[in-house]
Amino acid sequence: MATVRNVYLFAKTAVFKVRAINVPRRTVSQVTHKHFRSAVGCGSVAKLVGLYNSYSTGRRPPSSTSSSSVGLADELLAAKVQPDPRVADDGDPDSDKDKEEKEKVNRTLKWTFISFGVMITGMGSFLLWSCGSPEVGPDGNPIIDEFSEMPVIQQYLLRTWKGMNDMNRMIQEPSRDKLLPDPVKPPYIQPPYTLVLELRDVLVHPEWTYETGWRFKKRPGVDFLLHHCGPPLFEIVIYTNEQGFTAFPIIDHLDPNGLIWYRLYKDTTRYVNGKHVKDLSCLNRDLEKVICIDWDTDAVSSPRNHLKLKRWDGNMNDQSLVELGLMLRTIAESEVSDVREVIDYYRTFDDPLAAFRENQRLAQEQELAVKQRVEEEHQQKKFTSSIISSFFRRN
Rank of each mutant, 00 (worst) to 15 (best):
G137W: 08
T194K: 06
D139N: 08
D145Y: 01
P191S: 09
I260D: 00
S44R: 13
V70K: 07
D90V: 02
L197N: 12
T57Q: 14
I171S: 07
P220T: 09
Y345G: 02
V196C: 03
S67F: 02
M164R: 09
K381W: 08
N359K: 10
P352G: 04
P220E: 06
K102C: 02
V342D: 02
D313W: 05
A354W: 04
L127P: 01
S67Y: 01
L128F: 04
D351G: 09
D84G: 05
A354L: 11
K47T: 06
W111K: 06
G140I: 02
L287K: 00
M1K: 12
D344Y: 07
N165I: 15
G137S: 13
G325L: 00
V118Q: 05
W295K: 03
L77M: 03
E173S: 12
G71P: 01
I238Q: 05
V136M: 07
V45T: 11
E207V: 03
E358R: 09
I120Q: 02
L254T: 14
S130T: 15
N305E: 05
L109W: 12
L180W: 11
M167C: 06
E323I: 11
E198I: 14
L233N: 02
E135W: 11
T212P: 00
E358D: 08
R340C: 01
P249N: 04
I331F: 11
E103N: 00
P186T: 11
R159S: 13
G71A: 13
E75Y: 09
Q82C: 05
C42F: 03
V237C: 07
K371G: 12
K275C: 00
E335I: 03
A88Y: 01
E377L: 10
D92M: 04
Q360K: 10
Q372L: 06
R304T: 14
L353E: 00
D252H: 14
K34F: 01
Y210L: 13
H228L: 02
V4F: 11
G122R: 05
S56C: 05
R215I: 03
Q366N: 14
P151Q: 04
K17L: 14
G137L: 06
A88S: 15
L226D: 00
L9M: 11
E207M: 01
G325F: 00
G117I: 13
N6S: 10
F16G: 07
L179C: 09
L309I: 10
Q30L: 12
K185D: 05
R285H: 09
D84E: 11
H306Y: 08
R394D: 12
V277N: 11
E235C: 01
D344L: 13
E198D: 15
R5D: 10
I387F: 07
R26C: 04
T32A: 15
N273V: 04
L307W: 13
Q379W: 12
R25N: 14
G132R: 06
V4Y: 14
A332D: 04
G117P: 01
R59F: 08
P206K: 05
R347S: 09
D90I: 15
A332G: 14
P183T: 10
K178H: 06
R263F: 03
E207W: 01
V31A: 08
